[in-house]
Computed example of a mutant assay.
Amino acid sequence: MVETKVFKLAQIKDAATLINAGELVAFPTETVYGLGADATNEQAVKKVYAAKGRPSDNPLIVHVASIETVEKYAAFISDAAYRLMKQFWPGSLTMIFKLKPNAFSKTVTGGLETAAFRFPDNQATLNLINISGKPLVGPSANTSGKPSPTTANHVYHDLNGKIAGILDDGPTRVGVESTVLDMSTDEPVILRPGAVTKEQIENVIGLIETNHHKVGKDETPKAPGMKYKHYAPKAQVYLVDQGDWEAAIKWANKQSFAVGVLAETQLIHEFNLGANITSYSLGTGVQEASANLFAGLRQFDDMETIKVILAQTFAANGLGTAYMNRVNKSAGGEHFEVEQD
């Protein structure tokens, strides 16, 4: 096994050389680390699926460093989409557009006639794109289904020996993946909630819908995160609703196995945690919780003794919508249920 090289920011040219050679290089964004490959090189893109163990019908997001690049590949960009680009790019908004014929291989699009584009808010990655001269596919740089990586160490943990390099720019700021907005339909629809909220989008282009369609077994999703299990550590995660924490901690203290508690600092300090309980602070408020969620899940995933993780819930509005989307998927929708006397 060839060890994966970790590049410092001063070595971006070396990372770009690997991209142009058809190799995989993980890159930082403001949301999570992405697994980069030249989007115009089908063989390189196939390596992404192999490295992650990702289903081949799960389309990839194309990362760009200019609106002009999107114009090169998209068949049509509406005035509303341009207004969103002006407001949120670079940033945590991904938009899906219909493509010009043969714009990308089916390996990128999952066989669809659309592709998702994002202009990330991270200067190191924008430099990587510009120096390589290529748009980059960039799914989260982790083993498929596991918690997304928010540090270069997380990427190294999952993919060392499977990819050529990692461009290290420290921890990500946002911590949950981008909002995915389908602009290829008559009416815009949010397919995945993220850091750019429904309310923020509506302030720019008016009322929009949120997709509640469950993707069928034989159906190709239009965006990542719509079909397959995501963000799941080995331990069972249970969501703990606001009024159930006292009962949940009481239950955890009585268990013979190790339990992880993933919650705000203040909430952790409210209770006496038994010797079998390990806590991970999400910080204070939903913004810090979103930034720290995946790191917390990953820490518990590295602790073989942890069998159950109790995770805090937040109101599903604003950024809380994205947080709850991710933590709900990690728990498979399971909530802690208070034992009845």
Rank of each mutant, 00 (worst) to 15 (best):
V2D: 08
V2I: 13
K8F: 08
K13P: 11
T17S: 09
N20D: 08
A21W: 06
A21M: 13
G22M: 07
E23H: 12
T29H: 07
E30G: 10
V32C: 08
V32A: 05
G36D: 05
N41G: 11
K46Y: 05
V48A: 02
D57M: 15
N58T: 07
V70A: 10
A75H: 10
I77G: 10
D79R: 06
R83G: 02
L84V: 00
W89N: 02
G91V: 12
S92H: 06
S92N: 13
T94S: 15
L99V: 12
A103L: 03
T107C: 06
A116S: 07
A116C: 09
R118W: 05
F119H: 15
P120Y: 07
D121H: 14
N122M: 11
L128E: 01
L128H: 00
I129R: 09
V137D: 02
P139I: 06
K146W: 11
P147F: 03
T150Q: 07
Y156A: 07
I163A: 04
I166T: 04
D169Q: 08
G170S: 08
G170C: 14
P171D: 13
V174H: 09
S178F: 11
T179E: 02
V189L: 13
I190C: 00
P193Q: 02
V196G: 03
K198E: 05
V204D: 01
G216C: 11
K217Q: 10
D218C: 05
E219Y: 01
A223I: 13
K229W: 09
H230P: 08
K234T: 12
K234S: 11
A235Q: 03
G243S: 01
A248L: 02
A252E: 08
F257N: 11
G260K: 03
G260W: 00
A263H: 10
T265C: 08
T265R: 14
I268H: 09
N276T: 06
S279W: 06
Y280F: 14
L282H: 03
T284P: 08
E288R: 10
A289N: 00
L293C: 00
L293K: 01
A295V: 06
D302C: 06
T305G: 05
T305W: 15
I309V: 07
G318W: 12
L319I: 15
T321A: 15
Y323G: 00
V327H: 00
A331V: 03
A331N: 03
A331L: 00
G333C: 12
E334P: 04
F336L: 01
F336N: 01
E339C: 07
E339T: 06
